[in-house]
């Protein structure tokens, strides 16, 4: 038997949902471990320290997965370390590839974010207005540091070269399984590619009018999920429930649509689309019946940018409030 594939996992700025997707592989993961040796999985799963990874020789790890976005100086450092140690590096999940949920914070200034987090929320009790300071001298002698915020959320590939991209929040475990198998078999597309089925959610969605033999029509009324109950068999977009299925990579197998929830775009844009939000605006606005319906959409979704850039703000063209 060949030598086991050495793998490393790093969670940068994220929620560990992507690790859950890996764990969700359950038996398949156990089987895979026959072929894989996990040398690093921090800070979530294995008790390996950053300094252990730093100590490994450069290029000594076959495959590295990074989930989460780059939000602070610690992420910057560790992503660079990962790149140095791993022969192949995968940006894994919506945060690493698109910016993810946290990137919506960049629609605000740092001051707005910090004020909200440390002063304004209902549950905050901070009468002195203490704010986090990256460097702090405790009792005049203990030099304490915490990581400092980056100017904005960054994608992994803005800092280091990324070999492959995987979308999803989190990536669907079936797809992850196929992915691991593909990696193990070495049957991979050219570097820099997305590992994807290449088609939109609509292509795998059983509600697609084209599949159900119906004609797609203009949307006459925009609805939110609180407005009535969608017909579980008909295209949500057609019913007025704004769904990003046409725009989003469908490696999820349309899981949300299967449970009557519209797609919100976690899989990221189809390769070739430059800006998810802008393309979304173009496609959706084109599908609305008239200007009144468009105005209705703006009323129903007053925070339009956060709606269309829920997962992909950082990967967009304008990605930071100036």
């Amino acid at each position: 038997m060949a030598e086991k594939l050495k793998m490393a996992f790093l969670l940068a700025g994220g929620c560990a949902g992507c690790e859950m997707a890996l764990v969700d592989l359950s038996d398949a993961l156990v089987d895979a471990l026959e072929h894989i040796e996990v040398v690093f999985w921090a800070p979530t799963v294995a008790d390996v320290k950053y300094k252990d990874l730093e100590a490994m020789p450069d290029g000594s790890i076959d495959l590295g997965l990074i989930d989460g976005m780059i939000r602070n100086s610690e992420h910057v450092h560790m992503v660079k370390v990962m790149r140095a140690k791993c022969k192949t590096l995968v940006a894994f999940g919506a945060c690493a590839t698109l910016g993810g949920i946290a990137a919506m914070g960049d629609m605000h200034t740092h001051k707005e974010l910090f004020d909200q987090a440390y002063l304004k929320t209902f549950s905050t009790d901070n009468p002195d207005g203490v704010m986090p300071t990256p460097e702090y001298l405790l009792d005049g002698k203990y030099d304490l540091t915490i990581p400092s915020f980056t100017d904005r959320v960054m994608l992994i590939d803005e800092l280091v070269d990324v070999d492959y991209y995987v979308g999803g929040c989190p990536p669907h475990h079936d797809f992850v399984g196929k992915l691991i198998a593909a990696i193990l078999s070495g049957n991979l597309p050219p570097k820099g590619s997305w590992l994807t089925g290449g088609h939109a959610v609509c292509d795998v969605c059983k509600r697609n009018p084209a599949i159900t033999g119906q004609e797609r029509m203009f949307i006459g009324e925009v609805k939110r999920m609180v407005d009535g109950k969608p017909d579980p068999d008909k295209c949500l977009l057609q019913q007025g429930y704004i769904c990003f299925g046409p725009l989003t990579q469908g490696d999820c197998g349309a899981s949300c649509l299967n449970v009557n929830i519209p797609c919100r775009g976690c899989g990221g844009p189809i390769p070739g689309v430059k800006d998810f939000g802008a393309r979304c605006v173009s496609a959706i606005a084109s599908s609305l019946k008239d200007i009144e319906t468009t105005e209705q959409l703006m009323e129903k979704f007053p925070n339009l940018a956060k709606f269309v850039y829920r997962y992909s703000y950082t990967s967009g063209t304008l990605n930071k409030k100036l």
Binding site: H199, A200, C202, D203, A210, E215, R216, G245, S287
Partner: peptide, 27 residues
């Protein structure tokens, strides 16, 4: 090969020039 068959374009065309047809078994 890039089309996902979502059909957004079909009603959009002012000249009814677009239709969905099977290609490799997909619309």
């Amino acid at each position: 090969e890039k089309c996902s068959g979502c059909g957004i374009c079909v009603p959009l065309c002012p000249y009814d020039a677009i239709s969905l047809k099977p290609y490799a078994d997909r619309p």
